Amino acid sequence: MTHDPMTPSRHALARGLLGGGALFLIWEIAARGFDLPAYILPAVSEILLRFWTARDVLGGAAVYTLGEAFGGYLLGGAVGVALALCVTLVPVLRRVIVPAATAVNSVPIVAFSPLILLWFGMGAGSKVVMVAVAVSFTMFVSALAGFDRVDERSVNLMRSFGASRAAILWKLRLPTALPLILSGMRLSTVRSLIVAIVTEMLGAYGGLGWVIYQAVIVIDFVQVWAAIFVASAASLAFFGFVSFLERRLVFWR
């Protein structure tokens, strides 16, 4: 009898779909049964109908936001891993980089929005920078924890056989750190979209955050919920894609 490695994932997906369906059903019954106004809680059917009628606007906004989030995600991931690598290869830098990164991360990322918007403008560039700042610390901590897991005895052994720094990095440090790096990448997906949307609400020319802000101004709360649904779907898709890559690249787990 062959074992299907995808069965647990399929069961988890089925449970998630059933749970989501039950939640939406209860939501629909409550909204209709209590005749709740849209500004409190619109019915799911109203939200789905608005999603369909405004699909072009919401779809374009989702693509715009995902582009910003993905650009900042890649930039922040590269910066975070590079900083962790510098700290690992040059230990004296740990005393400078780690406190500085912790100090930046201790401030809510939204607090930097006015400055970033002032420096980089209202376009997509400012959102990419904001996402990169948010993602870089998560990736830095994850990558540094991964590099710190390397057994120094293994490093010394490879050096005794004449291995160069590049060879040790490629054959020992990166494979050891890869599981934690990919875990950090997975956790950063949701944060990247949240930061992009919040920054768009503070100032933008497009995107889901801009759609939500405009809908609030005209008191169109069904449109707000439709944009939230699209944002949730985009976040789940992004998270699922990175989780898929993690399972494929770190197959030994």
Rank of each mutant, 00 (worst) to 15 (best):
residue 131 V to E: 13
residue 113 S to T: 15
residue 158 M to W: 08
residue 142 S to L: 02
residue 120 F to M: 12
residue 131 V to Q: 13
residue 134 A to K: 10
residue 172 L to N: 03
residue 58 L to P: 14
residue 160 S to R: 07
residue 48 L to G: 08
residue 158 M to A: 06
residue 63 V to A: 12
residue 101 A to R: 03
residue 62 A to S: 11
residue 43 A to R: 05
residue 87 V to G: 14
residue 43 A to L: 03
residue 61 A to W: 05
residue 97 I to M: 09
residue 156 N to E: 14
residue 145 A to I: 00
residue 64 Y to F: 11
residue 114 P to N: 11
residue 49 L to A: 15
residue 108 P to I: 07
residue 135 V to K: 05
residue 119 W to T: 03
residue 109 I to C: 04
residue 126 S to F: 14
residue 88 T to L: 03
residue 160 S to H: 06
residue 107 V to D: 15
residue 154 S to M: 13
residue 90 V to S: 10
residue 82 A to E: 01
residue 57 V to M: 14
residue 133 V to T: 09
residue 63 V to R: 06
residue 45 S to M: 04
residue 142 S to F: 01
residue 140 F to K: 01
residue 40 I to D: 13
residue 158 M to P: 02
residue 124 A to F: 07
residue 64 Y to T: 04
residue 127 K to E: 11
residue 138 T to A: 00
residue 80 G to I: 03
residue 172 L to D: 01
residue 178 L to M: 00
residue 93 L to F: 11
residue 63 V to P: 02
residue 97 I to N: 03
residue 63 V to M: 06
residue 161 F to Q: 01
residue 173 R to K: 10
residue 81 V to F: 12
residue 91 P to A: 09
residue 61 A to H: 07
residue 179 P to D: 00
residue 117 L to N: 14
residue 102 T to G: 08
residue 131 V to P: 12
residue 151 D to V: 02
residue 75 L to E: 08
residue 111 A to I: 08
residue 73 Y to D: 10
residue 150 V to C: 01
residue 170 W to Q: 03
residue 131 V to L: 05
residue 177 A to D: 02
residue 125 G to Q: 09
residue 85 L to M: 14
residue 139 M to P: 00
residue 118 L to K: 09
residue 78 A to G: 08
residue 115 L to R: 07
residue 110 V to Q: 08
residue 103 A to D: 01
residue 166 A to I: 07
residue 52 W to M: 02
residue 148 D to Y: 07
